[in-house]
Design a protein around this nucleic acid. Structure first.
Length: 916
RNA sequence: GCGGAUGUGGCGGAAUUGGUAGACGCGCUAGACUUAGGAUCUAGUUCUUUCGAGAGUGGGGGUUCGAGUCCCUUCAUCCGCACCA
């Protein structure tokens, strides 16, 4: 553990290890009563393994509960304490649900394709599968050491050919599916109607038509390329500052043939589905934001002296009267025709310069807007005004039509641009604001107003359109209608979401079941030919120009069909998202080699009832996974429209770190504590304690193995849950583990010692507390409020110890409540109490509401809103009598000075308030 | 700039529909048992205090008999998105 020197727990660490070593050969009475967590945990983990306690049967007669963790990438460095946070939470829920009669599916597996194993192969020549296997073994060992009740018979691994066979199988289905926009549904490509004029144009045209409809297609794409990793990155893997998310080096643009998936076609479905699921609002918003739906209109502008029209997308067709110029993106296909002879060199220079700029520069908001006039004018359809066409890089080719109408007075970007280039800024909307100065400025064209108001200067006799006096909403509707009637434009919806770049130039990923033939034809492998496995390689290095290492696997690469036609296999592999898109489906039938999963099992187990994982997957994994699921749903392969009913994000666990006054971070092994202050061991400089992400460089990573060694798995589990609300970001405070460790010690000392049991009636107060505990813990588990559940169990234990005696019945009930949280200790005590079998299979104890009923209540009495005294009153006492009793109380007399109160408020079972 | 959260003792955090603020735990203080305590047990622990009480949930205002909770306003921190027309 990388604790700061001289903290108590470091010393405790040492003592505990010594103690555990000594235990085995001194079996005195005192030792027998010790909480020997290492022995206990080993014993029960072996028991669970030997007895397959957590094996899930497909017993369709029981109600099901599918609780899923986001499966990890098995990295070389093993688990950190962040992993068990979510895993413990789902384990508690799984055990709780099982005790309540549910057939629970709670599986674990490995998202094992990915760069680190491949990077390691490049450096050492070790095959990635070997590295992967070792890492999985280590992860599995660590997870088992935490007592997590997974059904290991269902373990899956995305790199297993028995798994990725079906990933390839799904890809084939994506390829062979088109999206029927009318029905808003994916359909088999065989059901695609080919229009007569396409058929008439010949086979090539038909093929092209089909290719354009497939959900998966192969095309030239301008992609992000990371020269450091020599890999293509998706938009999502590029950070805002233009750096590669994985390695932190700058990415660049490159043109490559790539596989793409048409996820934007599912935008409406993906949006609609969010309404039905129980997910954190923030995640839903992030997905909505990512999809980026906006409604408006597409408007065609005639171009002076040309046949082409310039089409723009706008969300504000109502502001057409204020459009004083047009802007096209530097990549716009019509730009060449717009550039007049006089402006050509200027335009070319600008486009060249824009092309050189990195995306980072282009998207820097603080940057001054740039652009040049093309020399050509367009005609504003609402008033036939001549408006100049400019080119500027603040307009992006990738959104809308790559061209805009600029309304400087009512759009901040256009306002900035017009201000910079001295273009006119006519106001067409009288702002709805109380700020007189601002309103005047807007009307003068000196300020920009994007809110609501009433139109002015928005009429033309020539075209017959008049929206003066209307509000924004009315204006938009009127203009769209007018555009439609005059065939100048139409209502339109635009999305930010783009086609998903679905290939990587890497070795360690799923190979595409694709052959590119010498004549240009692309074919897919037959299902019987799956899985297409990866070839063995000597070298795993990617080419420096974007080709995958698979391009060197000559024997694997080259194929010939029965007619002697030559072909090459696809050398790209699928991205890491592929395997994680559907793994929740494989768990339900992981060993099926006939189909990805049996329909009957899918029908029973899906959807996932509870899905727990980090917020970092809020958009990508969850959106991609929903997309695939919807395609599978449309094809009748799965029976639900959404895969995950309830989603929960656990908060990140942070750790203390240290920084100098200048803000420089100091590695924890260079920090010493003296009298509550922190100092640099080298320079002696005083340091500030901060909370930061755990990282190798700060040396503040807490390894669960170390915590388990010192305090045991039950303590680790309990502490992870006791730390705070599951969804909160919270710092790991090493001393805190001691609190729950003490609690487990107390539980062990009291409940494992049968001399504390008695045969008679249970103590009233203790029985009431027990039933309150059963109720509270059950409710808290359902609500994922584990921290308060644990504190309730502490309250009960403290009371039981105070009472000194307990009945066996009460103890057995309590131990079953504790079971999901601290399963090893619970099993141990359960067996000491003479029960055979696992406590995991015992029923959750019933609680009796009548035990919680009170016949009297200790009322806090407030006088003028301040608590003055408390009084015990029967609940069935008449209002008048209560008033009399309370007012005659000596403290009440003192504060009221005998006078009649103005008001007397009695809230039954709550409070009494006297107003004087 | 937009969207989402969060703000409570020395610390992590509790507080159904507005109803005893600080549960539970850490830490700390005192005591007991002990060769010892870093084990265990007991008591205490929001702050101020003239020991009557007063103040108190980021700040300011409001509604209410009563506000951590509702409303308005403001500040701070975190996360996500960001020239998306």
């Amino acid at each position: 553990m990388n604790f700061v020197k001289k903290t108590p727990s470091c010393q405790l660490f040492f003592v505990k290890i010594k103690q555990n070593r000594l235990i085995s050969h001194t079996e005195s009475e005192a030792d027998r009563m010790e909480y020997k967590f290492a022995d206990i945990e080993k014993r029960w983990q072996d028991y669970w393994e030997d007895n397959h306690t957590f094996k899930t049967e497909d017993d369709f007669s029981k109600p099901k509960f599918y609780v899923l963790d986001m499966f990890p990438y098995p990295s070389g460095s093993g688990l950190h304490v962040g992993h068990p946070e979510g895993y413990t939470a789902t384990d508690i829920v799984a055990r709780y649900k099982r005790m309540n009669g549910f057939n629970v599916l709670h599986p674990m597996g490995w998202d094992a394709f990915g760069l680190p194993a491949e990077q390691y192969a490049i450096e050492t020549g070790t095959h990635p599968s070997l590295t992967t296997q070792n890492n999985c073994d280590n992860f599995r060992r660590q997870i088992k050491a935490l007592g997590l009740g997974y059904d290991w018979d269902r373990e899956i691994n995305t790199t297993d050919p028995g798994y990725f066979k079906w990933t390839q199988w799904i890809f084939i289905r994506l390829y062979n599916t088109w999206f029927d926009e009318e029905l808003q549904k994916g359909r088999p490509i065989a059901e695609l109607d080919i229009p007569a004029e396409i058929k008439a144009a010949g086979e090539a045209a038909v093929t092209e038509y089909i290719v354009e409809k497939r959900l998966a297609y192969y095309d030239d794409a301008q992609v992000w390329w990371c020269p450091h990793c020599r890999i293509v990155c998706s938009n999502e893997e590029v950070l805002n500052d233009g750096m590669h998310e994985k390695c932190g080096n700058p990415v660049e643009r490159k043109n490559l043939k790539q596989w793409m998936l048409r996820i934007p076609l599912y935008a409406e479905r993906l949006l609609a589905g969010l309404e039905k699921v129980d997910w954190p609002e923030g995640v839903k918003d992030m997905q909505r934001n990512w999809i980026g739906r906006s409604t408006g209109a597409e408007v065609d502008f005639k171009v002076e002296g040309a046949n082409e029209t310039l089409r723009v997308f706008t969300t504000r067709p109502d502001t057409l009267f204020g459009a004083t110029y047009m802007v096209v993106a530097p990549e716009h296909p019509l730009l060449d025709t717009f550039a007049t002879a006089g402006q050509k060199s200027t335009v070319d220079a600008y486009v060249a310069q824009a092309g050189l700029k990195s995306e980072l520069d282009r998207s820097d908001l603080s940057r001054e807007k740039s652009g040049v006039f093309t020399g050509t004018y367009a005609i504003n359809p609402v008033n036939n005004a001549k408006v100049p066409i400019w080119v500027a890089d603040y307009v992006l080719m990738g959104y809308g039509t790559g061209a805009i109408m600029a309304v400087p007075c009512h759009d901040t970007r256009d306002f900035e641009f017009a201000s910079a280039f001295g273009l006119s800024i006519p106001c067409i909307l009288d702002p709805d604001t109380d700020d007189k100065v601002l309103r005047e400025q807007v009307i003068q064209g000196l300020a920009c107003w994007i809110g609501d108001g009433r139109y002015i200067n928005s009429a033309s006799e020539e075209t017959g359109l008049d929206i003066n006096g209307l509000s924004k909403e009315e204006g938009i509707a009127t203009c769209i209608k007018w555009l439609h009637q005059n065939k100048l434009g139409t209502e339109a919806i635009n999305y930010k979401i783009r086609d998903w770049l679905f290939s990587r130039q890497r070795y360690w990923g799923e190979p595409f079941p694709i052959i590119h033939w010498e004549d240009g034809e692309i074919t897919l492998l037959e299902e019987s030919q799956l899985p297409l496995q990866l070839p063995e390689l000597e070298k795993y290095e990617p080419g420096s120009h974007g080709e995958s290492p698979l391009a060197n696997a000559t024997e694997w690469l080259h194929v010939r069909d029965e007619n002697g036609r030559k072909g090459k296999r696809e050398t790209n592999t699928m991205p890491q998202w592929a395997g994680s898109c559907w793994y929740y489906l494989r768990y339900i039938d992981p060993k099926n080699d006939k189909e990805p999963f049996s329909k009957a099992k899918e029908n029973y187990w899906l959807p996932v009832d509870l899905y727990v994982g980090g917020a970092e997957h809020a958009v990508l994994h969850l959106l991609y996974s929903r997309f695939w699921h919807k395609v599978l749903f449309d094809l009748g392969i799965v029976s639900t429209d959404e895969p995950y009913t309830k989603l929960f994000n656990q908060g990140m666990i942070l750790a203390f770190a240290y920084e100098t006054e200048a803000g420089a971070k100091v590695s924890s092994d260079l920090v010493v504590e003296r009298d509550g202050s922190f100092f640099h061991t080298g320079t002696g400089e005083k340091l500030t304690q901060i909370v930061a992400k755990m990282s190798k460089s700060l040396k503040n990573v807490v390894n669960p193995d170390d915590v388990v060694r010192v305090f045991g798995a039950d303590s680790l589990r309990l502490y992870e849950m006791f730390l705070g609300p599951l969804d909160a970001v919270k710092p790991w405070v090493e001393n805190g583990v001691k609190g729950v460790y003490n609690f487990l010690n107390r539980v062990h000392r009291f409940f494992a010692d049968t001399s504390h049991y008695h045969e008679g009636e249970e103590d009233q107060e203790l029985r009431k507390s027990l039933h309150a505990t059963i109720k509270k813990v059950g409710g808290d588990v359902e609500a994922l409020h584990f921290n308060t559940a644990i504190s309730q169990m502490m309250i009960f234990t403290n009371l039981a110890i105070k009472k000194g005696k307990i009945t066996r019945t009460s103890a057995e009930a309590f131990i079953r409540v504790l079971g999901p949280f601290a399963p090893h200790l619970a099993e141990e005590i359960w067996s000491i109490l003479g029960n055979s079998g696992s406590i995991a299979e015992a029923p959750w104890p019933p609680f009796d509401e009548s035990m919680l009923q009170e016949d009297s209540h200790e009322y806090p009495v407030m006088i003028n809103g301040k608590l003055r005294f408390k009084i015990l009153l029967p609940l069935n006492m008449a209002e008048e009598e209560i008033k009399e009793q309370v007012l005659s109380h000596e403290t009440a007399q003192k504060w009221t000075e005998g006078a009649d109160p103005k008001r007397f408020i009695h809230v039954p079972k709550k409070i009494i308030n006297i107003v004087v």
